[in-house]
Amino acid sequence: MASAQQLTARQGDTLDLLLWRDAGLVPDHLTRVLDANPGLADLGTTLPLGTLVTVPATSASTATGVRTITQLWD
């Protein structure tokens, strides 16, 4: 099991962008992250610069860090 992560918002970050860029997570994880960060949704669509976001620990089966690649031609 992985440990929780702390992410810091950059200028213009939305929560889904921050999670994708810094943790490789997809929008399916938003609810879990919002539950771990009370009041985060109240900050609005764009996170204030420097906002700390806690990403709760996940099991290896749900967060492998591997992205699927679709290849159109061989």
Results as ranks from 00 to 15, higher is better:
M1E: 06
M1Q: 02
A2S: 15
A4N: 08
A4T: 08
Q5G: 06
Q6G: 08
L7I: 01
A9V: 08
A9D: 11
R10N: 11
R10F: 03
Q11R: 03
D13H: 10
D13W: 11
D13G: 04
T14M: 15
L15H: 02
D16C: 02
L17E: 12
L18I: 01
W20K: 15
D22T: 01
D22L: 03
D22A: 06
A23S: 05
A23Y: 02
G24P: 07
V26S: 15
V26G: 10
V26R: 14
H29E: 02
H29Q: 11
L30I: 02
L30E: 10
L30K: 09
L30T: 04
R32Y: 10
R32D: 09
R32I: 11
V33L: 09
L34S: 04
L34K: 06
L34M: 09
L34V: 01
A36L: 13
P38V: 02
G39I: 02
G39D: 04
L40A: 05
A41K: 05
D42N: 10
D42F: 08
L43P: 06
G44R: 04
G44V: 03
T45Q: 07
T45V: 04
T45I: 03
L47R: 01
L47N: 10
L49N: 12
L49V: 12
G50N: 10
G50Y: 07
G50H: 11
T51N: 10
L52F: 00
T54V: 13
V55S: 04
V55A: 01
A57E: 04
T58I: 06
S59F: 00
S61G: 00
A63Y: 05
T64F: 02
T64I: 00
G65D: 04
V66A: 13
V66H: 09
R67H: 14
R67G: 15
T68C: 06
T68K: 10
I69T: 12
I69F: 14
I69V: 13
I69S: 11
T70Y: 13
Q71H: 10
L72P: 07
L72G: 05
